[in-house]
């Protein structure tokens, strides 16, 4: 019985130490695990100055343009506070849409244009039939109308 208690105590102490260590490690690594930077963070200079990094946000409504060469597209990534123009050449993912989430990887050039080498769509966690989505949209539209009145 005594040996069992001793073993239990040792394991408990070990586990507690481990939890503390992990909390400290994750805290210090927090900044390194960031997958993308928001336009506001880029503006503040928090994103790496050299080399490529990722920006994330929403595709600004009405900002998507196909370039005359037929290969490049331009759009703006916004976090509703700040926005950054992005240029990209390639196939956009199925869920890429104005007003929806996006993550782009690339470099910021000297004119402040983000030259993306990869564009990924970020979707939300909602799943519902199209009719339900339309109903919610209609309800939201009615609500904003109401508040304008």
């Amino acid at each position: 019985m005594k040996a069992r208690h001793k073993r239990f105590g040792l394991i408990a102490v070990g586990l507690i130490l481990l939890v503390i260590a992990t909390v400290l490690i994750t805290k210090s690594f927090r900044s390194n695990l960031v997958f993308f930077f928001s336009p506001t963070q880029v503006e503040k200079g928090e994103a790496p100055k050299t080399g490529s990094f990722r920006i994330g946000g929403l595709v600004e409504n009405g900002s998507l343009k196909r370039m005359p060469d037929g290969l490049h597209v331009q759009f703006k990534v916004t976090d509703t506070a700040k926005s950054i123009p992005v240029q990209y050449k390639g196939i956009l993912p199925d869920l890429f849409k104005e007003g929806k989430g996006v993550v782009a990887e690339g470099k910021l050039n000297e004119n402040g244009l983000f030259e993306a080498s990869q564009v990924l769509a970020k979707h939300d966690e909602n799943y519902m039939p199209p009719e339900a989505a339309a109903a919610i949209e209609a309800a939201n539209a009615a609500k904003t109308k109401e508040s304008v009145k």
Binding site: T26, R30, L33, V34, F35, F36, F37, G56, V103, L120, K122, H123, D124, E125, N126, Y127, M128, P129, A132
Partner: peptide, 24 residues
């Protein structure tokens, strides 16, 4: 929740109403 990820948040959790249609 802790980090910026490409993966979306949880649709089903113990603390919030599920973000999914009932049949799904």
């Amino acid at each position: 929740k802790w980090w910026n990820t490409l993966h979306q948040g949880a649709s089903v959790s113990l603390t919030q109403a599920p973000a999914m249609a009932a049949i799904m």
